[in-house]
Write a protein that binds this DNA or RNA. Sequence first.
DNA 1: CTAGGGTTAG
Length: 389
Amino acid sequence: MKEAGVSPNVVTYNSLMAGATRGHTLSKCFDMFEVMLEMGIVPDAWSYNTLIHCLFKYGQPDEAYRVFNDILLQNIYPCQTTYNIMMNGLCRNGYIKNALILFRNLERHGYIPETMTFNILINGLCKSEKWKDTMKLFEELQQSGFSPNAITYTTLMKCCFKHKHLRKGLEIFSEMKNKGYAYDLFSYCTVIGALLKSGRTQEANKYVAFMIKIGYQLDIASYNTLINMHCKAGKLENAFNLLNVAEESGLECDIYTHTILIDGLCKAGNIVDAERHINHLNSMGFYCLVAFNCFIDTLCKLGHIDYALQVFHSMDVKDSFTYSSLVHNLCKARRYRLASELLLSSIKAGLKILKSDKKAVFEGLTLTGSVKDVQTFKLKVRVAKLLNY
DNA sequence: CTAGGGTTAG
């Protein structure tokens, strides 16, 4: 543009800011905003929307809120999108309450929310495990004059599946189909994924058949779902064949693809290839925590707990799955002392622990340790929890 | 410029 003698305007810089946000750089987005100011170009609502979105996306809710307040003081009027971005950003940074307060305040000032606004809040409520409030808002959406769409239904379904309400989730899928929103690839992947996870292979196959019949252009996420289906059935060869099909159609496999295949290899008992695949990923600079978790869990189940511990200690990042697999399997192997130490470490790391793991450790210690040991351990757990909250 | 899908433990 510069060479052609064309001067950039506000739209040019808005585009650059949006691109920077997608390309994962907060600083670049800011740079573009500043260059725009230096050039004497006046930012518009779009510029601020993008800036606010970028700040939320990269975990700076306070700054985002400051920018929002700044524009209220200027002559720039926030639009529907501004408010949507605010509510979405608040939800994603753990401020669902504030998002709802903003929503209700806006309503009082005559703001009419659209389907997307509801979807943002429904998603936020789902993620913060508030099922009743979620359904209340869903009711509100239906009475608002706007209609729920495929995104609304998929969000609700995923929330059901996450909380093991498989039947309720399938009911929502039926409702969605009856209302004519079923021609949607995302919703099929959600349903199939949930069925596979709960071991309902037959039903999963049924929906896969529907999905194929509709004739969607499959993307990598849907291929991952199908590859997972073959892995769960123990048909590794089919899984790898499908991987080839995906790659031949120009798709690039991602971290999910690798993880699904590694888990498939593990579950098929092929720990040699699973480890090879993990090392291959590492050598390319990918650290895949979930794949490590699958590997550790399988090692434990096959009785190689000490090797699992070795892998565990070599890991830079661990999560509740990593700890839980080891704690559970150490208990099964009656190695309660070590299990209790790991359980304590995970609490200290601020991770969520399973009731079943805690129970197994307590019962194991009670069975094999002295009463004093058990009491000391309980005290340590309590202290660790207090320090976390 | 903003909303939904796909991977692991129990």
